Amino acid sequence: MNLVQNIVLVAIILFFALLEVGSRKHRHFHATADDTKLELFMFLSLLAFSQPFIFAVTGKLCALLMPAQRDAWAHLPWWAMGAILLVADDMTQYWWHRVSHSPLLWPLHRAHHTAHYMSIRVTYRNNFFYYLMMPGLWASGVLIYLGFGNVYLVYIVVKLTVILGAHSAVPWDAPLYRIKWLHPLAWVLERTVSTPATHWAHHALTNDDGIGHYKGNFGNLLFVWDLLFGTAKITRRYPAKVGLQDDLVFGKERWFVEMFYPLFHSRRAHSALVPGGRAYAEAEVDSDASTHAPQALAGKP
């Protein structure tokens, strides 16, 4: 199953990559060597280690603790399996994402927001331990043991397509807002799944422009969770800049610190990636900008 899933995943990624290259959006990334290393190594680690490890462990534990339940739910109709996956995987990921914006877990998710560009390459940009601790992956492993294997393959293809599209440098939803007769379709889609407009707002550099909403729009596949739990903001516009303010002021973190914290700690002044450190609020960053501007220009931790 992992082989088929990985082949499909690579095919979807190639499709969106060709869109970014064909539109020449990739020329505006100005990614650093650290950006590329973080994104590449996180993608490979998730694909080759984290997900297979979680599925292997859940399979072994289920076989040990409830051997008679193997494929016990395989008789369920596909739509029932899909609904269960949406709750067990996608809704729990919404909450995992949401609590990852709290001071305690922010260091494990911060890397996802340090990219100063939107692209499919940002999709899996996170701390190594972020995915190992993700409840939805562990729940999915149990459901696969219970007989959801084939339906999970279809589900994950749909989910990956949506989240890659939401991070893509090509805002595929823009025509829906420009063309009047497509507005009803836009209304439905933006309230159902994550789109570039709603998800780019979550990555915005600032909330001051009325577009940014980095304390909301947490949904991955379904945007319904944001509507249901009161964290949705829909503007049909795209933020001018994405990333983190404190990186502009204090310089970016090294890729291995972002990926492997707490095994590695930041050497930067004012960092969430040190024991007892915390994220800087936007107002605090603004007040410190003049003091630390030379360090920010140097771009060094």
Rank of each mutant, 00 (worst) to 15 (best):
H101D: 09
F49R: 03
V4N: 13
K252L: 08
L137E: 03
A169P: 05
Q69P: 00
R121G: 00
C62S: 15
T206E: 15
M42R: 04
A169E: 14
H97S: 09
L244N: 10
F148Y: 10
W172C: 03
Y124T: 05
M1L: 06
R24N: 10
L65W: 13
A88T: 04
L76C: 10
I179A: 04
A80I: 07
E284A: 07
L18D: 02
W225P: 02
G149L: 08
A293W: 13
H30Q: 08
G243F: 11
T198D: 03
L297H: 08
H183A: 12
S290H: 14
S100H: 14
A111C: 10
L132P: 01
F229D: 13
Y117A: 03
W200T: 02
A204S: 15
L185N: 10
A269T: 13
V285H: 02
S102K: 12
L19T: 00
R70W: 01
L228S: 06
Y238R: 10
K37R: 15
M133R: 03
P52N: 10
F49C: 11
M66F: 10
A186I: 07
E20K: 05
K159S: 12
M259E: 01
L263G: 00
L9Q: 09
F16S: 04
A72N: 05
L46T: 02
A63D: 14
A281L: 11
V249N: 07
A166V: 03
R267K: 15
L153M: 09
W187K: 08
I84S: 07
V170S: 09
S194A: 15
L86N: 14
V249G: 02
H292L: 09
Q93R: 14
A283V: 04
M134R: 13
F256R: 06
A17Q: 01
P52W: 05
H199I: 05
P196K: 08
R237C: 01
Y214E: 03
A240M: 02
F264N: 07
K252F: 08
H28D: 08
F148I: 01
P67Y: 06
F16V: 03
G230L: 10
L132V: 01
V122F: 00
D208S: 11
A80C: 02
K180N: 14
I163W: 12
K159M: 09
A281T: 15
V188A: 09
L44D: 01
L61C: 06
P171W: 09
V157I: 09
F29L: 12
R236K: 14
Y130C: 11
G147T: 06
S168L: 06
L19D: 00
P135C: 09
Q5V: 00
L263Q: 02
F55M: 11
K25S: 13
T231A: 08
F229L: 14
Q69H: 11
P184R: 09
L14N: 06
A17C: 00
A72R: 10
E190W: 02
L104P: 00
L244V: 12
S290E: 15
Y145S: 05
H30M: 02
R178V: 00
L85S: 03
A115W: 03
V151I: 15
L108H: 01
G165N: 08
G277S: 10
H112T: 06
Y238H: 12
Y131V: 07
I13S: 07
L19P: 00
